[in-house]
Design a protein around this nucleic acid. Structure first.
Lengths: 200, 200
DNA sequence: TCCTCACTTGGACGACCGTCCAACTTGAGG
DNA sequence: CCTCAAGTTGGACGGTCGTCCAAGTGAGGA
C-alpha cells in the first residue's frame, strides 16, 4: 500500500496514542505501535527518524486535539451563576476522567517523559501555553455570559485552573474517590469565581 | 558480605529511588538498581520476588518518607496571617520543586505506573490517605497558631491542597515557569484560607 | 510493453531485559 | 579443624527491544 508520508505519520501517531492508553508508556514499543497501525515494522523508521520522535509527535498531537477537545466540555452548560457555571464545566471534566481514566493517564505519562528529557536542557517550549489560552477563552466566555469581569489576569487564572485540573487527575488516579474529585472541582470553581466581580 | 534481608531491602529501595530520579522509570532496570546499590545481580531476587515488587516497595517508601519530609516544610514559618502562613509553606514546596524537580518527577512516575496497574482492578489502597492526613494536621496547626478554625472538613481541604500541589508540580514540569508556579501557590493559599474563620 | 527507481518491507543484528539456578562463600556448631 | 546448611553470587537463558538495510514491489515515463 502506497500512502503519503504525512498520512502515515498521522496514522502512526493515532496508533501510538491508542497503545499508550491501553498498555502504558512502557508498552509503547515500535512493534506494538506498527501492529496497532496495521503497518510493517520498517514503516516507523521510514516515517520518523526514531521512536522518540514519534512519541514526541504523539505528545504534540494530544496537546492539540485531545486536551482541547476535553476542555471544550468546560463551556458546556452556561445557565446559572458564574461559580455554578464553572463548577458544571469542571464537573464535566471529572466525569470524563472517571469514564476514560487511561486517556488522561496516557497524556500525563507522555508529558512527564517529555519533561524529563528536557530537565537539564532549555525550559519547556511552552507546550501548555495552548491549554492556558483555551481555558482563558472559556473563562472569558463564562464571565461574559453571567455578567462578570475578571479582577485578575485571565491567563493567570487559566494557568491555576489547568494546574488544578492536573491535580484533580493525578489525585483521582491515586485514590479513585469520585466524590472527593467532584468536591475538589467545586473548590476550584469557588476559588476561581472569587476572582471575578459583578459588572456594573 | 552478609547483610540482614530487611537491610538489603531498604538499601535496594533507596537505590531504586536514586535510579528513578536520575534515569526515569524506564531506566530502572534490575541491573541499574543493583549497580547503584553496589550489590550483585542476584541480590535483587533474593530480597524481592520480582522487580515489580521492588518498584512497589519504592513507591511505598517515597510515600512514607520523601513526601512527608517535603510537606513537613509547609509548617516551617508561622508568623503572619493564616493566608501568609499557608502561602509561605506552599512557596517553600515550590522552591523544593524547582531545586530538585527530578525527585518529584520520580514520585509522579512511580505513582502513575502504580495507578495504571490497578485501573481495572480494585480501587486504590488509599496510598494518598497518609498525605492527606499529614497536610490536614499542618492545616490544623496553622489555624491554631493564627487563631482560626476551619469552616470545612479539614481532611477535605487537605485533599484539595494535595491535588493542587500535584498540579503545581506537573504544570511547572511542563512550562518551567517559576513565577507562575509561585503565583499558583498563592492562589491556593488564598483559596484554602477562604475556608477558615477567625476564632471568637 | 518494459524499465526504472523511489517507496516499502520484514528479517537480521547487537544490546539489554527479568528471571532463574548451579556453584561458591561463609560462619556457626560439633 | 571439619561439616554443613544458609546465604550469596554472577553467568546462562529465552525473550524483546530499537535500528538498520538488502531485497522486493509497483506506478509512471519511455
Amino acid at each position: 500500500m502506497r500512502i503519503p508520508v504525512a498520512e502515515r505519520r498521522a496514522a502512526l501517531v493515532a496508533a501510538t496514542l491508542a497503545v499508550v492508553e491501553r498498555d502504558g508508556l512502557g508498552g509503547a514499543s515500535a512493534r506494538a505501535i506498527v501492529a496497532e497501525a496495521g503497518m510493517p515494522l520498517g514503516a516507523l523508521h521510514y516515517a520518523f527518524p526514531s521512536l522518540d520522535h514519534l512519541l514526541a509527535a504523539a505528545l504534540d498531537a494530544v496537546t492539540d486535539q485531545e486536551r482541547l477537545a476535553a476542555e471544550a466540555l468546560l463551556g458546556a452548560g452556561v445557565d446559572g451563576s458564574l461559580e455554578a457555571t464553572l463548577a458544571a464545566g469542571l464537573d464535566a471534566y471529572v466525569s470524563l476522567l472517571i469514564a476514560r481514566p487511561a486517556r488522561e493517564l496516557a497524556y500525563l505519562e507522555l508529558m512527564l517523559q517529555a519533561s524529563r528529557d528536557r530537565l537539564d536542557r532549555e525550559p519547556g517550549t511552552g507546550r501548555y501555553a495552548r491549554s492556558y489560552a483555551v481555558v482563558a477563552a472559556l473563562l472569558e466566555e463564562a464571565a461574559a455570559a453571567t455578567g462578570h469581569r475578571w479582577a485578575s489576569p485571565v491567563l493567570e487564572l487559566a494557568r491555576h485552573a489547568v494546574a488544578m485540573l492536573d491535580g484533580i487527575t493525578t489525585t483521582w488516579l491515586a485514590d479513585h474517590d469520585d466524590a472527593a474529585a467532584r468536591a475538589t472541582a467545586r473548590f476550584l470553581a469557588a476559588a476561581v469565581a472569587a476572582h471575578a466581580q459583578k459588572e456594573g
